[in-house]
Design a protein around this nucleic acid. Structure first.
Lengths: 190, 190
DNA sequence: ACAAAAGTGTTCCCGTTACACCCATGA
DNA sequence: TCATGGGTGTAACGGGAACACTTTTGT
């Protein structure tokens, strides 16, 4: 997100002749963050007549899931872009608040039918971190014991023998998402 | 859907300068069927580079729910358009099969969180008809007793004192969707 | 008479929820 | 020693699924 025209807005770009919509979205994301191969979904096309005061513009919004560790601070500065907490989301330019709203709805629906959360976590993560992702996306609290009980039934979330000593004094077991196992039997339940 | 270029394709049109995407979709639908105020949702934007062999075209697909009784046969003929059963859906032009697929996924997800089915039925309908709509969209069979049990718990599906003698010899009670009641308490469960 | 669709309850099971305490460690 | 987050089990409940027979009436 970058400040523009006195109001904040989502970051965007124009689709080139020689690229698909998805390619364009990936290019813009790369220019902004230096990241490639990021989970990204189309949110939708926004086409009200007067959504841009200048010329007629139709925008296709995309939503990307970016690992909290993976972003390039300097690129953000260079483009005058900032991360904002959703709770602190200001009034945005034009219909960009609608885009955000639709993206969140889309995420909430998908998180219980697709293993999205791993896109937002490091390769190795603790169960508490995973739970935090769910709580953030659903914006509701989850019971720790019930959550961990469910996780245990999921084959492709594997406990490693490594221990994270950073986030807690006692140390927490690190888990990983076994993508191959998921691909073999892509039944999602959570 | 209309035959074109030797292959079948979805019916479409171009967005005018003075209309929004939604307006354009409604206009095209009206030209084709004579219908207005139809439930319609954007399916998504399709923008592969070579999806049209001629010039670069980006299409925004829409999905409409049309009451089985409400369509104008002559308009369909005039535009050389035909209804096809989904099971008989042929290979379509370009990425149109993807559009259909995405539309169906969208419908399946929405039907259990929104009262869609009434858009496909007459004002007064029997429970069997309603069940058929669900079975068609989900393409699975539903137990009659369980279905009717669930319907009984929904306040805004009201039994009328009218009886339909057309679809069965014994006659079936006609129900209606009370939109006002739903709007007051739009909690959907089915 | 019979074919065709309408209508009607109960039981079982499984998944979801609620809930509280001890453990290991760094500061 | 204490503050912090890690880790664990059980009981009650409720929603969903399975399941078969009688009724009415037009033909």
């Amino acid at each position: 997100m970058d400040p523009g025209r006195g109001e904040w807005s989502l970051y965007g770009g124009f689709v080139e002749e020689n690229e698909s919509l998805d390619d364009a979205a990936n290019r813009v994301l790369f220019q902004l963050t230096g990241l490639k191969d990021i989970y990204m979904k189309q949110v939708g096309a926004f086409g009200a007549i007067d959504r841009d005061p200048g010329e007629r513009v139709i925008s296709i919004a995309y939503c990307a899931l970016i690992n909290v560790n993976d972003y390039d601070e300097s690129l953000l500065k260079e483009h005058q872009v900032e991360w904002v907490n959703l709770e602190d989301l200001p009034k945005l330019y034009s219909d960009h608040n609608d885009m955000v709203k639709k993206a969140i709805t889309l995420l909430r629906r998908r998180i219980s039918s697709e293993p999205l959360s791993f896109n937002l976590l490091p390769d190795l993560f603790t169960l508490t971190q995973l739970q935090h992702v769910y709580e953030a996306i659903l914006s509701e609290n989850i019971d720790k014991r019930n959550f961990r009980k469910r996780i245990k039934t999921i084959e492709y979330i594997e406990k490693t023998d490594q221990i994270d000593k950073v986030t807690s004094k006692r140390g927490a077991a690190l888990y990983r998402f076994n993508k191959e196992a998921y691909m073999e039997d892509p039944i999602f339940k959570l």
